[in-house]
């Protein structure tokens, strides 16, 4: 089900008929994507889910030109990712934070690492300084600017990765399972900042295995064996439980609970995805005793 809101604006990213296969040692190419069409509108928050091996990370890397499609095209703000002239511009527009907090920082000092991206763009010194300041502030790392990245906690390291990407002023932020290696505190830190960035107008593509996180997006795209199997709002996607389970996925725990309650209490709404929604739904229907 294609998402129609925002179609009036020029799409930020357009993926057309993309196939991708990894060249393999034995000579047989391993297909990872088999015909994907997708558009991402400015400011849209999309969750990309799918079982391991479905092609999520591959798709992400195609969006900023780290990989080039075997066939099909990808445009970022009208720029073809296959055109080497646009490489820098595309990487400036599409920022990416990866899964492992240990493998994304380059420098031995926090503020110098944040500057790495803008330095690559050849920006003048005052602009560099300004961007580093801003990125440190947004991610709450200003007080840690002279520290060594190696001594930061997991959550802080991912915030540093975010800062480094934000300093390039992207219009789309791709998070490739960026919170999966963090402890609960670290996850909260990162998710809070991402939500803030979305409210400020940044488009977000979040690849995640945690259905509770996916439930917070505006749109959920399900990838299965290299193709898009479902594409709709979280309510639309997560109520199609049968389909999801056949794809090897699960629904957010609250959606399970809602179904269970719905079977016993007839008027209970079938579409409850987050704990906050559950609390609201129960309070509304519980009647007496509620403050």
């Amino acid at each position: 089900m294609p998402h129609l809101a925002g179609a009036a604006k020029q799409p930020l990213i357009r993926v057309e008929g993309v196939h991708f296969a990894y060249p393999s040692a034995g000579g047989l190419a391993v297909p990872a994507l088999r015909g994907v069409d997708l558009t991402i509108a400015p400011g849209e928050y999309i969750a990309l889910i799918g079982p391991n091996g479905s092609g999520k990370s591959t798709l992400a890397r195609l969006l900023n030109g780290l990989l080039l499609p075997t066939s099909g095209r990808i445009w970022v703000k009208g720029m073809d990712t296959a055109d080497p002239r646009f490489r820098q511009a595309i990487r400036r527009t599409v920022g990416m934070v990866f899964q492992n907090p240990e493998s994304q920082f380059v420098a031995t000092v926090v503020e110098e690492d944040v500057a790495f991206g803008p330095e690559n763009l050849g920006l003048p010194e005052e602009e560099l300084r300004a961007r580093v300041e801003w990125a440190l502030q947004v991610t709450g790392l200003s007080s840690l600017r002279y520290r060594s990245p190696a001594h930061l906690s997991g959550g802080q390291k991912q915030r540093l990765a975010l800062a480094g990407v934000l300093a390039m002023r992207p219009e789309v932020l791709i998070l490739d399972e960026a919170t999966s290696m963090l402890d609960p505190a670290g996850r909260h830190e990162v998710r809070r900042i991402v939500a803030q960035l979305h409210r400020a107008g940044l488009a977000i593509l979040s690849i995640t295995q945690a259905m509770e996180e996916a439930a917070e997006a505006e749109r959920v795209v399900v990838l299965y064996e290299g193709r898009i199997a479902l594409d709709g709002s979280p309510s639309e996607v997560f109520t199609d439980v049968g389909r999801l389970q056949s794809l090897g996925l699960d629904v957010p725990p609250m959606a399970h609970l809602a179904r269970m309650l719905g079977a016993r209490v007839p008027s209970f709404p079938p579409v409850v995805l987050t704990p906050a929604q559950m609390v609201a739904a129960v309070r509304e229907r519980a009647g007496g005793g509620c403050r």
Binding site: L66, R87, R92, G95, N120, V165, M168
Partner: peptide, 23 residues
């Protein structure tokens, strides 16, 4: 780790020393 770092660097627009500025 080296490979992961290389990918992250590329994603941040690293293209060698040419045309770079310095903080």
């Amino acid at each position: 780790r080296a490979e992961e770092l290389a990918v992250a660097m590329e994603a941040r627009g690293y293209a060698g020393g040419k045309g770079r500025s310095y903080l």
